[in-house]
């Protein structure tokens, strides 16, 4: 596995107006560094508003970061003008959360999956493209493909629609796919099926995946590396098994405690959860931005921002409870 995508100290601030004269910076992503190798899945886990989608959009250069660098296959694409990005647009793809709204309801499955080919001028004749479409549908197990070609999105189940979304992303043979909550709208009982499929395709085509989710339980099973994001920052990073067995950051611990498992004893006890409401990136707390919700907050937590440091081999955490070596 070799390095493919690198984000270096990326910040993405959105300037939003507040009243007539004032504007504030929403620090959606605030100093994040990640790297992804070919064939590897990095899960990005965090609550709503933590900046996951924004980070994915930056990684696809759909947004130009406020600061920091984006490197893809060794090339710095942070400021590359759009017209010089065609090669990148082909090699990096996205899968979106909502299969209902991300597919044009008036296009057939064939048209939907074929569209990226036309946009990128691949396959000169229709027959050539049809063959690629059929192969992509077979890849995502929409078989027999002939049966699906003429269908419209409303004729498909949630899981089937998401497969169409995956086929669309896959048909250009990308090396990197950012999958933003790809199964959160899919039925709970079919989620694993889609995730297994993505895993299989990844191995087959050696694709690097950014798997964005708020569900740490699926992240545990379907990723190679796991990053926990809170209010624009990565607060913990390691291998998924290590994070689940040995979570260090209080926020990670709370996320883990909050996951329900099907246990009839649950109803007799309170579920643990993070205190209070999620905080706002428009007005992030000082120091460790988790401190207003942290059960272990100390004096210095509101004053100093803890850096992300390696506490154990391959296990990074940003918290003053772990002063490092």
């Amino acid at each position: 596995m070799t390095g493919l995508l690198k984000l270096q100290d990326v910040k993405m601030y959105f300037r939003v107006r507040k009243g007539f004269f004032r504007s504030v910076d929403v620090k959606a992503v605030d100093g994040v560094s990640i790297s992804l190798k070919r064939g590897e899945t990095l899960a990005l886990v965090g609550e709503s508003g933590s900046g996951k989608t924004t980070l994915a959009r930056v990684s696809l250069r759909l947004l130009k970061p406020t600061s920091g660098r984006i490197l893809f296959d060794g090339k710095d694409i942070t400021d590359t003008p759009e017209k010089e990005l065609r090669w990148f647009r082909r090699r990096a793809q996205a899968i979106f959360q909502d299969p209902y709204s991300s597919l044009d309801p008036f296009m057939t499955v064939r048209q939907l999956v074929e569209e990226p080919l036309i946009l990128h001028k691949i396959g000169s004749v229709s027959d050539e493209r049809l063959e690629l479409v059929v192969r992509a549908l077979e890849d995502v197990k929409l078989t027999p493909a002939e049966e699906f070609l003429g269908k419209y999105p409303h004729m498909l189940s949630g899981g089937q629609r998401q497969r169409v979304g995956i086929a669309r992303a896959l048909i250009l043979k990308p090396e990197y796919i950012a999958a933003d909550e790809p199964v959160s709208m899919v039925d709970a009982s079919s989620r694993a099926e889609i995730l297994y499929l993505m895993r299989e395709l990844q191995e087959k085509h050696d694709i690097a995946f950014l798997y964005i989710t708020h569900d740490i339980a699926t992240a545990r099973h379907f990723s190679d590396k796991l990053a926990v994001m809170h209010l624009g920052k990565i607060v913990e990073f390691s291998e998924p098994a290590e994070i689940v067995e040995n979570p260090l950051h209080p926020y990670t611990q709370a996320l883990i405690d909050a996951v329900p498992e099907p246990d009839p004893a649950n109803r007799f006890r309170e579920r643990k959860s993070v205190m209070g409401e999620p905080l706002s990136p428009a007005n992030p707390p000082s120091g460790c931005n988790f401190h207003p919700r942290c059960p272990y907050a100390m004096e210095k937590c509101s004053k100093q921002t803890p850096p992300l440091i390696e506490i154990k081999q391959g296990h990074y955490v940003a918290c003053h409870l772990y002063p490092g070596k």
Partner: peptide, 14 residues
């Protein structure tokens, strides 16, 4: 099919 933090990978309804 329920993904559990500890335990085997989830199954699914085919």
């Amino acid at each position: 099919a329920t993904p559990r933090l500890r335990g085997p990978k989830p199954d699914f309804v085919p």
